[in-house]
Design a protein around this nucleic acid. Structure first.
Lengths: 130, 130
DNA sequence: CTAGGACCTGACGTCGACGTCAGGGTCAAG
DNA sequence: CTTGACCCTGACGTCGACGTCAGGTCCTAG
């Protein structure tokens, strides 16, 4: 696949793919003229990279755990890192859950103070129209 | 409370508190000489701000939903934003959960390929010592 | 053969949440 | 009155994940 196709299918920019390669996260074959060619699995790999970035991991952390995908065999270090990053993600999950619950509290309280109002924008069957 | 105390108790830097004030997220009284004085509730407010930042919200988004904490009464706009940001957080939660599950898959697969190894660093009661 | 769309390599720009340094007041204790 | 910890206001530095522009190459259809 060419870089544009991968970018489109994975939902990222061409620049991002070049950046990933620069960071050692994504290899590509080259044609004789120097253009990148990707195997079909690259799309999933890019999606996974994105999800790791979204989980707050930096390029270095991603670089550390990506080799775990490539081989079934792991060094002790890689295994440790994998567990460490999982723990990070789980911690983030806990924090996020707490934050969501706080938001829910605020929403609930505000609804208690707005007894006459609709509780869902768009979900109100009340006579808003006409 | 003085800025240093608030910073210490909330676990952030003094610079961060001044930055929050600059962004309109945190008000402070001033002494005659211009030093900031905070009410005790400021600590919780700062912790909440932090959790919102950790949830991936920017200053502007935080600024939009913080007034919801101050008054029990909300405008329609504020209520909408509150719901919108909660939806964002929930979406992040879903993504993060998926990412964690992917990591778990990788970990499980790698464990299957390492049958002789301990599965938890530090949790192994095996004869590592002596 | 030619047009124009996709690709290439630099290399500088960006944006947010602070860190950090400079230069100078403030305040409770001795 | 002095010392040292704490506070103040600018204002520039940082770092990561790209955006974007410049200048040039490649390739496929007509």
């Amino acid at each position: 696949m060419r870089i544009g196709e991968v970018a489109a299918e994975a939902g990222v920019s061409v620049r991002a793919l070049r950046y990933y390669e620069e960071q050692g996260l994504l290899d590509a074959e080259r044609t004789a003229s120097g253009q990148r060619r990707y195997p079909p699995g690259a799309v999933d790999r890019v999606r996974f990279i994105q999800s790791l970035y979204a989980a707050g991991l930096g390029s270095k952390a991603v670089l550390r755990i990506l080799p775990c995908m490539d081989r079934g065999v792991l060094t002790d270090d890689m295994y440790e890192r994998l567990l460490a990053e999982r723990a990070r993600v789980q911690a983030q999950l806990d924090d996020l859950t707490a934050t969501r619950d706080k938001l829910d509290d605020v929403i609930r309280l505000s609804e208690a103070h707005r007894p006459g109002r609709a509780h869902h924008a768009g979900a109100d069957a009340c006579a808003t129209a006409s």
